[in-house]
């Protein structure tokens, strides 16, 4: 994980710095003096001095890395004139709240609907749910967000269009962000549940005289969850990616909208830091998922 993280740092840094939009001149024009003007030598020198852009790239990279790891110093924002870390800490809770609520909706909804569909295999309810999941995985999240706003805010006036701070504000973005994962988790749960129900240990449990409820709750649920758990990490990644867009739709003050704004503003250090944070969250989630898997499956626990 350490190597991956380092590589992500390096890749992000060099990518951001070698592309045409990443030179100090471009940034300077973009953030301070306007695109039409040309920058004077003095302005450029001063700017580069302040933001540490004079050294060769690899030195800049090492400085940035050192600062980030040892001092929590991820550089200064060109736009907000504040340390990047402060901005991140300010924005992080909103993203985490949104991602966790969406994940909760996706897991609870996806797992229970998936089990229901599996138990009603090939009946009307199953067909209907499978038809709906096709839409769930195919609709763009931001469009779902807009349609939700249209229905619940514009027409029904049940919740405010955008904002942050109350549960009312959270409902629509969380739902819009969750829908894609909810549908995929439902599909996986259904497939995995059906596969589990066909296993010989289910047959043996039946032959033992257990009730259907016992068989499902004790022998099928946990087993059917294993493949679901393995994809949770990936789903969380998709959700973090989706949050970038959903946060923009709902003006949700998280890392995602910060990233988008910073990209428009060519706020280099903030962009780098946002990407790092998102990747870091993603890796942490994957790590937790691995732990959960080990906890669930004794075959892995004992090697």
């Amino acid at each position: 994980m350490a190597i991956t993280l380092f590589a992500v740092f390096a890749l992000t840094f060099f990518l951001m710095n070698v592309v045409p939009g990443g030179t100090s001149e471009m940034i300077l024009k973009h953030t301070f003096i306007g695109l039409e003007e040309s920058a004077t030598q003095e302005q450029l020198a001063q700017f580069s001095e302040i933001y540490n852009l004079n050294d060769p790239l690899y030195i800049q990279f090492i400085d940035w890395l050192k600062g980030g790891i040892f001092e929590g110093d991820l550089g200064m924002s060109f736009v907000y004139h504040k340390p990047v870390l402060d901005l991140l800490l300010l924005r992080l809770p909103a993203t985490i709240i949104l991602a966790l609520s969406s994940m909760a909706i996706a897991v609870v909804g996806g797992v229970s609907l998936g089990i229901y569909a599996a138990l009603k295999e090939n009946k009307t309810a199953d067909h209907l749910l499978r038809f709906l999941t096709l839409f769930g995985v195919s609709m763009p999240g931001f469009w779902v967000g807009l349609i939700l706003i249209l229905i619940f805010s514009v027409y029904l006036k049940m919740v405010p269009v955008a904002g942050y701070g109350s549960l009312e504000n959270l409902i629509l973005p969380a739902f819009a962000l969750s829908i894609h994962s909810l549908a995929s988790i439902m599909r996986i749960t259904r497939t995995s549940m059906l596969e589990t129900l066909g296993q010989d240990y289910i047959k043996f449990a039946t032959s033992k005289g257990l009730s259907v409820n016992k068989i499902i709750s004790r022998h099928a649920l946990k087993n059917a969850m294993l493949p679901v758990v393995t994809v949770l990490g990936f789903q969380m990644g998709a959700m973090l990616g989706g949050s970038v867009i959903i946060e923009t739709v709902f003006a949700w003050p998280g890392i995602g909208s910060l990233l988008v704004n910073s990209i428009f503003a060519r706020d280099l250090y903030v962009v780098q830091a946002c990407i790092i944070v998102i990747v870091f969250l993603f890796l942490i989630v994957n790590f937790i998922v691995d732990l959960v898997y080990i906890y669930l499956d004794p075959r892995i626990r004992y090697g």
Partner: peptide
């Protein structure tokens, strides 16, 4: 039928490896 399964008629299955729940 459930009253009969196990108590009256018990079946030792043909696939011992797959017939035990691996997680329990």
């Amino acid at each position: 039928m459930r009253q009969i399964r196990g108590r009256e008629i018990s079946l030792i299955p043909q696939n011992p490896a797959g017939s035990l729940n691996p997680l329990l």
